[in-house]
Computed example of a mutant assay.
Amino acid sequence: MPGDVPVERSRQVTPADDPTPSAWLWDLYFTVIAAAVAAAILLVAGAEPRNRAIALVALGAMVLVHLLIGRPLIVRDAEDLVSLSVVLLQIALFSVAIYHVPLSTWLMFAVIPMIFQTVPVRQAIPLVVGTNLVPVAVEYHVDPAGIGIDLVIAAISTGAGICMGLWIMRALEQSRERLRLIAELEASRAELGRLSHEAGVAAERARLAGEIHDTLAQGFTSIITLIQAADPALRDERLELAVRTARENLAESRALVAALSPTALASGTLPDAVRRQTLRFTEETGVPAPFRLTGDARDLPTRVEVVLLRAAQEALTNVRRHAGAREAAVVLAYAPDAVRLVVRDDGRGFDPAAADGYGLAGMRSRAAQVGGRLAVRSDPASGTTIELEIPA
């Protein structure tokens, strides 16, 4: 069928598409910091072998806890009691390492980001403050006289650590927001492609139905009329055969028109189809939408009826999706030289000049194909009125 073109499918956005650095980069950073501090512990002068061994064991335990427990929690963004427990365990192991080898303080470069990634900010900030006080407490235990400079260093480290942690959290939040927007964009793109495809197919079917109705069907009708005018009794067998063939082909062309027309029109008149659309709208949304018919209903060209029906469907869809209306109304008015469709609602309104996502361009395009005119009036105070008038 013409117009049946493939619709581009949207690629599903997954967590693997997150533009932030992969988890393994953070694992590498943590491991490199731990390895550097371990090397420093091995090389530092003055530390007893026993203290070095305990600090190295504590450091290795921190790496294992992170890789086996902490990392999955960070990936899942758990931020629960288990996450808090893991952070407290890491701080305890960090304290053990510092107590036995004060040089382990440099591991703070890995511990502070780990805290912010594992627990909520309201818990991370006091934990960072407490973590920075651990070296001060150790120094006070070893040499109380030098605690002043340690407090200054702890204050600077705490401020810098909190700022770095908040920056990390802000960057992660922006990345999550970008991922959410990408997912919404992909979904909107897929929906737009589907609607465009359906609209294109419907428009092509309506065009073909109109062409068949206006050319072949009318041509066969004219042939029958002319032959019967020349020989009303059809005494000539050849003329009688020609009339019978023309009538059969006229029936076929009408069947094609019916098959190409929307199913809502195939089972009744245009007013019946529009009335059914309003009833369905009310059933699905609970919003009252009375339908009113004025003038004398009459048969219209198929393509005109298709445009009017599609406009009613699109307008009611907009009310359902965007208006937030308490009431709507649909009017189908037949005049001697035109037919007019009006759809009103008392919703929030919108700016027609900036409304690209409301299907107005498609309605205007279809209206122009049959010589019609679409008018849109909308504001927050009075809602929206869509009026389509087609000469017929």
Rank of each mutant, 00 (worst) to 15 (best):
P2S: 09
S22F: 01
I227Y: 12
R344V: 02
E191W: 09
V257K: 01
V339F: 02
V101C: 11
L59F: 03
A183Y: 12
P135A: 03
A171F: 07
L59E: 10
E191I: 08
P15H: 10
V306F: 10
P21V: 15
M169K: 11
Q277V: 08
D299I: 15
C163N: 08
L181W: 02
A145H: 12
L216V: 10
N132L: 09
A297F: 09
D18R: 09
M1A: 13
H66P: 07
Y29I: 02
S261I: 02
A315P: 04
S382P: 01
R303D: 07
L388H: 08
V152G: 06
F30P: 01
V339G: 00
I212S: 02
L234V: 04
V342K: 02
I390Q: 00
M169Y: 04
V119T: 06
L166N: 01
T20L: 13
P102S: 10
G60S: 08
P288I: 13
I91M: 15
T317Q: 11
V257L: 05
A251V: 02
D346E: 10
D272A: 15
A328T: 00
E252L: 15
H100E: 07
D80V: 09
E48F: 05
I112E: 01
P262N: 10
E248K: 14
A39E: 10
A338Q: 08
L103W: 01
I390P: 03
Q228H: 12
L67I: 15
G349K: 05
L28M: 13
D236Y: 09
A209K: 00
L68P: 04
H100R: 13
R348W: 00
E237Y: 03
V57G: 00
R303E: 08
T282E: 15
E139W: 04
A312Y: 03
N51G: 09
D299R: 15
R205P: 05
V111A: 08
I147W: 14
Q313R: 07
L332K: 05
V136C: 03
L68Q: 15
L127N: 06
A187S: 14
V376I: 13
R52Y: 07
A233I: 00
A61R: 03
G161R: 05
V86L: 06
A335L: 13
A338F: 01
R320Q: 14
I69R: 05
Q123T: 12
E314W: 04
A137I: 06
A38E: 06
A78R: 09
A381L: 15
A206T: 03
G148T: 12
W167F: 00
V111I: 15
R11V: 15
